[in-house]
Structure formats: structure tokens, C-alpha cells
Design a protein around this nucleic acid. Structure first.
Lengths: 137, 137
DNA sequence: TTTATAATGCAACGTTGTTGCAAGAGATAT
DNA sequence: ATATCTCTTGCAACAACGTTGCATTATAAA
């Protein structure tokens, strides 16, 4: 596990540091979309707030994580497909439960293609569905 | 126009105040999704920041506006259909141009229905497409 | 082990959003 | 037109969120 995380960082041309390892580990554990605050809470006082911000920014730029839209702000989740600095492809859907507040990725559910009016060029698609998850129904 | 705005406020059981009239007027003029900051900039120093926050909150609760998810935070747009406190229905799509930064509503384009896994109940759907708008292609 | 480069922590700052409370304005009935 | 009740506003103070510059420390490669 530890080693797998290090390898992932290496694959993305990132140096291994304890902060990066812990944050990546948190994403792997939780499997839901996390906000900066969630990560801060989960890691305790081990790292500076600023370092967490910068780590998230770095992960974003390298294509390790992507933004997840949320009605309360911005969250982040691991990229499932192999994204890179150049190329992002996320056609999956995020579901946020209004009851328990968890946001997670509905893998396997594909976004049906949308017919855009003339002149519009899509590069990224984000779909957030809010409602109740199976655990809260 | 002035009178139309007052009537709209009345329809939603809201007292007419200059702040509410101006904010509603701004939404009617701009026709794009606005953030709190956009509104603040557009209205100048006429109203307190706090009042703008509270006005947006009130408009939200009464069903006059709805949240539009954005990769930089949260924006608001007028409800087109007749929404109310109880009942919101927004199946339209928002398009954000990565070039000019404007977010607007693609009326006429409907969100294709999504087949959710068992146990999930959807109550609200938000679709944001990012790319280039006709003016920036 | 040395060295070049990158990441971290700290401090300071700016922005964004919230709450309580006193003063002021809107709507209604008289 | 006025009095009255209620809702809205502005102010102050605060909390949360996010950014930048710089000195120090850690990583990876020679």
C-alpha cells in the first residue's frame, strides 16, 4: 500500500513526501469527493494548511485528481481513468446525498451525450445529481 | 420594468426594497449566472455585503433563483420555469466558456435522463459543460 | 556524500461567508 | 395620513477559505 502510493506519485513525476503520501492515501481510503477542509480535518495538525492547498493544486495540475462540483463549494476526487497533464476525460457522474452529505462517483453510469447548439465546443462535462443515496432512503 | 420587478417580488411574497429590486434587475439584465462577487461589483457600494448575501439567500429560499455549479465556486441564476419554495425543477444545462468565463443557460437543450443504480433517488440535477462558446471559437 | 531542485512551514495578507443586534423602512389597518 | 407591527438593513465582529513571499528543509540524482 505504502509502496503503491509511492509508485503512483512517481508515475506522475511527483516527489514522495509524507504530506503527498498521506493525502493520496486519504483519497484512496475514503473513496468519496473531499474538500480541502475534509482533508485538513482528516489529517489533523500534521501539515500546514498552505501545504495542503499546494498539494491539491499540484495533484490537479498533474492529473491525479479532478474537481468535483458541489453545491457547497469545490471538492476533489481521484481520477479513475488515466488522466494526464494534457488530457482529462471524465464522463462519470457524481451523486451527492442531501441526507448524509457524501458525494461519490457513480462509476458505470455514463453521461448520455448532449447535443449542443451550433458553435459550442465541449471540453469537459460535469454532472452532479443530488438526492438520497441507498443508505439514506 | 421597474413595476414588473416589484410585481415579481410581490408574487414571491417579498417586500420591495431597493436592494432586492436592484439585484433582481441585475439578473434580468445580465442573463448569465452571477456570483456574489459579480453582483457586488455590479452594484457598487450601494449596499452592504451582508445584505447581498441575505438577499441571495432569500431569493434562493423563495425559488426566485437557483444555484449554478461552477468550477470556481457557486453562482446563481434566475429560475426560468415557475419554481416555488416547495418545488424546484431545473433540467436545463449551463455552459461555461473557458475563454471568456461567462456561464449561461442553454435553454432548449434538455438533460437526457440518466439511469441511476437501484436505491438512488434524484431530486435535483446539475449539468455543467465547459468549453468554448460561439463567440470565442 | 554532495548538490541542484523542489517542497514545506511560517507569517502575513486578502477574500468570502456568517451571526447578533440596534436602527430603519415597508405594508397594513385605522 | 398615521400609527403599528414586522421584516430588512447596516454595522461590527468574527470565522472560514484561499494566496503569496521567503527562509528552511527534504528529495532525488550524480
Amino acid at each position: 500500500m505504502e509502496q503503491a502510493i509511492r509508485n503512483t506519485l512517481k508515475d506522475y513525476n511527483l516527489r514522495s513526501t509524507s504530506c503527498r503520501e498521506d493525502i493520496l492515501g486519504t483519497f484512496l481510503n475514503k473513496e468519496v469527493a473531499l474538500s480541502h477542509g475534509d482533508i485538513e480535518d482528516s489529517l489533523g495538525e500534521r501539515f500546514d494548511r498552505v501545504t495542503i492547498y499546494r498539494t491539491l493544486k499540484t495533484f490537479l495540475e498533474k492529473g491525479l485528481i479532478h474537481k468535483v462540483l458541489d453545491d457547497e463549494g469545490i471538492r476533489y476526487a481521484l481520477c479513475k481513468d488515466n488522466c494526464s497533464e494534457q488530457d482529462h476525460h471524465h464522463d462519470h457522474i457524481h451523486f451527492k446525498c442531501v441526507e448524509c452529505g457524501q458525494t461519490n462517483c457513480l462509476a458505470n453510469v455514463h453521461i448520455p451525450s448532449v447535443q449542443l447548439p451550433d458553435g459550442y465546443q465541449a471540453s469537459e462535462v460535469n454532472l452532479l445529481i443530488q438526492g438520497r443515496c441507498p443508505a439514506c432512503t
